[in-house]
Amino acid sequence: MQPKKMAIIATKGTLDMAYPPLILASTAAAMGFEVQIFFTFYGLQLLRKSLRHIKISPLANPAMPMPVPMPVLLSSLPGMQAMATKMMKQKIKKKGVASLEELRDLCHEAGVKFIACQMTVDLFEFKKADFIEGIEFGGAATFLEFAGNTDICLFI
């Protein structure tokens, strides 16, 4: 029997939006799926060697739970993003949720194929050395060729 296939386009580079593609890809691979993730625009941040710069912002994020009610304007003050990120990372650790690094490693181990969008790599002037080893570079046609034969295809 042919394995099921899943393709994901990862377009976001914030802490909250980094999780869905990595969780789904690692789990699908564990369940025997053949998986590819195409990283484009801000999603490229998830391929950088260190993921320490991945942050979450309370700004324009009204659904984010805050310890105390906070006027919107306060969220734009210096340090608020760092504070929100620190709090979220502490919560993630305390609740036994995997770190982004851990999920990314598990994806890699399980054979998930990572493809960086060449156009946005050039647009943002990234160098190959900015990214982890073992990734491929390609464009829309590369993604579509695989995506055309998948069972699940997601844009995140």
Partner: peptide, 13 residues
């Protein structure tokens, strides 16, 4: 124990 989704599944695999 103490691990959240999807770690129990990934570790099981």
């Amino acid at each position: 124990r103490g691990l959240s989704c999807p770690l129990p599944i990934l570790k099981t695999k």
